[in-house]
Simulated scan of single mutants.
Amino acid sequence: MKVAFLLSKDPATTHGGDLTISRELMAISRSAHETVGLCLSPDVTSTRLDGDLWKVPKPAVAPAAIALRSLRRRRSLVHTRFDDDAYVEALDTIEADVYVADHSYMAEPFLRSRWAGSKPLLVNTVISESLVWSETRGIVGRIDSVRIRRDELRVARAARGVGTYDADEAAYYRSHGVPRARWLDVTLAPKPAVDVAASGRRLVFVGERAWPPNQQAFETLLEWWPDISRGIDDAELCVVGNRERTLALPPGVQDLGFVPDLDAFLGTCRAVVAPVTTGGGVRVKILDAASRGLPVVATSAAVGSLSSVFEIPPHDDREGFVEAARAMLLDRDAAAAEGTRIHTINADRWAAGVPQGTVLDWIAS
């Protein structure tokens, strides 16, 4: 079977949580099927093939033109933004047995392609953009979130199947006329375990802060850090990921931005903290931490359905989050035991083929 993944970003040159898992899904697909990708890339000026990845020039954001097309097509802004004519033209030349739209909005070019109606489409929602827009993009986002949700349901109903990274989201789709919606129970391949027992009192937050939910979580951490670190003189909070803007930092906080060797740096940390309040989506922070054996202190939005997979209790209120983060700083042995526990769960799942089977079963469904 030949599988074509439809991507909004270039997985060869772009980083981010959604692409981390997209690359994992494509690698699993390649283990059983011929697999190609078609992506929008800022690094090319004309459509070209790079290995098994087709690259289409990614057009610059043109707000006025997008808004006009949005009105004409009666589509939300984000679904209009990624419905690109050059992408449709390239897609028309790629014949596959199954097409996988990575993000709901990447189903739009498929539905305008020659394959619509004759070839099966799977939609991996990754994250509900309607929730993100309503919480992080002001009045425009709150208004357009209604249209985004309508578009997400429309493309889901047009697909053969829908995959989500959250069990509750899959249940939502099933209750709204999408019976073949399922939770993709995907975890990452295990990495060498971090030596938490040798770590200092260092917590880490990882996230690209151009993504509004990550910026919000970062600002929350800055507000809560004085309570987390109170009375712990050597406590550190390190923030990793490209900055959205520079903010004043309380004592003990370092905004490191891009880290050249992330693996080596995370090997010096005691635990990952993630006070995310919306847009959990792919939850790569949690998946990556578990793959390394790094303990996690997180909210419900950050951990989602992975709470049951790794038996990680969420901490949604400030007091509970602060207490759990302080416990990681103050009790090295307990942190090390927690890291070993989640690393073992992750490794055992991978060895048993749980994530691989989830993806391959969905593609074949």
Rank of each mutant, 00 (worst) to 15 (best):
V3N: 03
A4R: 13
L6G: 03
K9M: 11
A12C: 03
T13K: 14
H15K: 13
G17Y: 08
T20C: 11
T20V: 06
I21K: 02
S22K: 02
L25F: 04
S31L: 01
E34N: 10
E34K: 14
L38R: 10
T47E: 08
L53F: 06
W54Q: 01
A60W: 12
A64R: 12
A64K: 13
A64T: 14
A65H: 09
L68G: 13
S70E: 02
R75L: 14
V78E: 05
A86C: 02
D92M: 03
T93G: 08
D97T: 04
V98Q: 10
Y99M: 08
M106A: 11
M106V: 06
A107D: 14
R114E: 11
V123F: 02
I127M: 15
S128I: 04
S128N: 14
L131R: 15
E135L: 04
R137S: 10
G138A: 01
V140G: 09
S145Y: 04
R147V: 09
R149M: 14
R150S: 15
V155W: 06
A159G: 07
D166C: 08
D168T: 10
A170Y: 14
A170R: 00
A170C: 02
A171M: 03
S175P: 02
H176Q: 12
G177M: 03
P179E: 09
L184H: 10
V186Q: 00
P190E: 02
V194I: 10
D195P: 04
F205L: 12
R209S: 10
A217L: 07
T220P: 11
W224H: 12
R230M: 10
R243W: 11
T246Q: 11
P250I: 05
P250R: 10
Q254K: 15
D255P: 00
D255E: 14
T268M: 02
R270F: 05
A271E: 13
V272Y: 07
V276N: 08
G281C: 09
R283G: 00
I286Y: 00
L287F: 01
S291L: 01
P295E: 09
V296P: 00
A298S: 14
T299K: 12
P313F: 12
P313G: 10
P314A: 13
D316F: 15
R318I: 07
R318Q: 15
E319Q: 12
F321Y: 03
L329T: 06
L330H: 07
D331F: 12
R332N: 11
A334M: 03
A335I: 12
E338K: 11
E338I: 08
H343V: 00
I345M: 02
D348G: 00
V354F: 01
P355W: 01
G357P: 00
A364E: 15
